[in-house]
Design a protein around this nucleic acid. Structure first.
Lengths: 207, 207
DNA sequence: GTCTATACACCGATAGAC
DNA sequence: GTCTATCGGTGTATAGAC
């Protein structure tokens, strides 16, 4: 983490240009798909020629890498607030986290594809961009352990179930809520299966 | 389904060339990944120039399409034998089908990616190539219904769970069996959750 | 440093000679 | 059917203007 936030003028200008490039890349991705990003298209939208992007990113994959890091950081921050207010009751907490992640994924499918699906041919995130993803995962294991679920396999099972439901939702009912509606029951079944007591779980309200 | 099996000499020769092209394409995919297939590479392996492939396939996507149909047909035939010998006991049948699909997926990750993940940018299977996939899905719902599971959501839940476990296995432990070992317990939890009686489920043997 | 112009190698696809 | 030649597109490297 060598990048200081760059308080000097030049550094701030540079940072702003990077921001514009990334915003343009997200824009292209949401319009035409993640794999349809081309350097020429991105450059056009920020008023540059394609090769000029290399002054700010080492390669196209470096742009994907920055986007990947952004996406996981967004989720980390979105859930941090929720984490403070996370119930002590494991079952309720499981519902809360599952719902949060599910909705976060469905709210921006392109972002989720980048975060959790291997859709860009040669791309693997750098360790720096991967860091927030690791932190989120570790926080999940910790939160579970603090609430009595100490078997790592149990948490892995919940995450697999959650990912499977999200995949089905995005692939087979992208504009509906068929699998979203299945989520609460799926979480309850998991809780029952791994022996989590019922506690005082308020039924999820669907307003 | 206009293609008759082509008994005349020319038709058989033509069919054989298509086979060689598809075999070469599978070979490239397994060596360098599904998205790394190039027409020039495939053509080289069958002793042709790239444009000549267009005498046999309308486009690169048409090659992917044929591969997609092949993959699902393979699974359909692999599981048909198993289907005849499928137990009446729902719990045992669930274990049997889940294990069969999981192992089929893990045995050839590239094939599974083509079947169940949207990894090729613009590709969607033709209705003809999609047909075996639909048949397999319908057969699953029918088999479940015949064994007392009439709620479509219950089956969808099992399939989501199964897909989630496979994804995790391929993405996070491609050479191991961490999630494969979780499968029996996951299926049992599902069975318990949707109210399937215990029956006489023999524990899965791990020889 | 930042950007442009140019160029390269590769891709899928097409046209037309044989 | 298969070839050669070629097209418009891509990511990317580099030289040089400012």
């Amino acid at each position: 983490m060598l990048d200081t936030p760059n308080v000097d003028r030049k550094g701030r200008r540079r940072e702003q240009t990077r921001r514009e490039i990334l915003d343009a890349a997200w824009q292209v991705a949401r319009e035409h798909g993640l794999t349809a990003i081309t350097l020429r298209d991105v450059a056009d939208r920020v008023g540059m020629r394609a090769p000029s992007l290399y002054s700010h990113f080492d390669s196209k994959h470096a742009i994907y890498d920055a986007m990947y890091g952004e996406a996981w950081t967004e989720y980390e921050e979105a859930t941090r607030l929720g984490r403070d207010g996370l119930t002590d009751d494991m079952r309720a907490a499981a519902h809360q986290i599952a719902r949060g992640f599910f909705d976060f994924a469905v709210a921006d499918p392109v972002r989720y594809q980048l975060m959790n699906q291997r859709i860009i041919p040669g791309f693997e995130p750098s360790s720096e961009s991967y860091a927030p993803a690791v932190r989120v995962l570790e926080a999940s294991y910790t939160a579970a352990a603090e609430r009595g679920v100490t078997d790592l396999d149990d948490v892995a099972l919940l995450l697999a179930l959650l990912g499977g439901l999200i995949d089905q939702q995005l692939a087979n009912d992208p504009d509906g809520d068929r699998f979203s509606r299945l989520l609460p029951r799926a979480v309850d079944i998991w809780c029952d299966g791994v022996g989590i007591p019922s506690g005082t779980t308020p039924q999820e309200t669907t307003p």
